[in-house]
């Protein structure tokens, strides 16, 4: 990655933290409502050694991972099906176009009514919300496969299933991977939202709720900070993996980085 870019990003973050701290110091806001930045950062550091928070973080992480796994399994299969059967795709397109823009958080109350099991509820909302980018990207990636590449394999006598597995899927893989990366971010949001709205016994969302009821705004913000940081790191790891795995794609599409 570009060194100067990283540096500029770091400078931006440092600048923001400094301004936030100054606002706190200036006494413009009551620090019972909005604690000083240094307090929040201190609390965040403290959470690393807090077994209660770690258990909650582990629970959210597990839900996130399970949800993402289910999403990939479901949405990629569905995408392969719709991407290879144009008629089925045409038939389902209006439905997809209608459902996709509904803010996913809005389905949580419905899920609360439908699921008695808290884990099932969280997984259901994650899968519902995170599937869209994977599904859409899989369909799009399959449409984008060079017909000549498929014809090449056909001309050597390979059947449709081989063509799908050996040409269509690898060539759609970079698009699918991007979809999964977007889905990962959505899964973090939905996991915590579901915890906040549906309650339960453990999770970062639960931790935040409890901190709020105890009037510990600093702990609330510290937990939120960790959630954001996790999303950021997950994204960066996936970007790096994509660059590595799909170098052929990035070279060809002119993505120079």
């Amino acid at each position: 990655m570009d060194y100067a870019r990283v540096l500029r990003g770091a400078a931006g973050v440092a600048g923001f933290l400094a301004v936030a701290e100054l606002v706190g110091l200036s006494g413009l806001v009551d620090d019972r409502f909005l604690p000083r930045m240094s307090t929040v950062l201190g609390a965040a550091t403290g959470l690393v050694a807090d077994p209660e928070f770690l258990a909650d973080a582990g629970a959210t992480l597990t839900v996130w991972a399970l949800g993402l796994l289910l999403t990939v399994a479901l949405a990629v299969s569905a995408g392969l099906l719709l991407g290879t059967l144009p008629r089925a795709e045409a038939a389902t397109r209006p439905l997809i176009e209608f459902l996709r823009p509904i803010p996913s958080v809005a389905v949580i109350p419905l899920a609360i009514l439908l699921f008695s099991d808290n884990l099932h509820l969280k997984l259901a909302v994650i899968v519902y919300a995170a599937s869209w980018p994977v599904l859409i990207n899989t369909i799009y990636g399959l449409k984008d496969v060079d017909p000549l590449a498929k014809e090449t394999l056909r001309s050597f006598g390979f059947g449709p299933v081989s063509v799908l597995a050996r040409v269509a899927l690898p060539s759609a893989a970079p698009f699918i991977a991007t979809g999964i990366r977007v889905a990962s971010g959505i899964a973090v949001i939905l996991a915590i939202s579901a915890e906040l709205m549906a309650g339960g016994s453990e999770g970062v969302g639960i931790y935040i709720t409890e901190a709020a009821s105890g009037g510990r705004v600093d702990l609330m913000l510290a937990a939120t900070l960790w959630a954001g940081l996790f999303g950021l790191v997950a994204d960066a790891v996936m970007v790096a993996a994509e660059r590595r795995l799909f170098r052929w794609h990035h070279v060809r599409t002119g993505g120079a980085r």
């Binding site: 000549l148 590449a149 014809e151 090449t152 001309s155 050597f156 006598g157 690898p170 799909f246 794609h249």
Partner: peptide, 20 residues
């Protein structure tokens, strides 16, 4: 359908190679 035991060198050779 595509006959068995046939090979083609396509005019658009670069598109017929798999970049991955």
């Amino acid at each position: 359908r595509t006959p068995d035991d046939l090979a083609i060198v396509f005019q658009d050779y670069s598109r017929s190679l798999f970049p991955w």
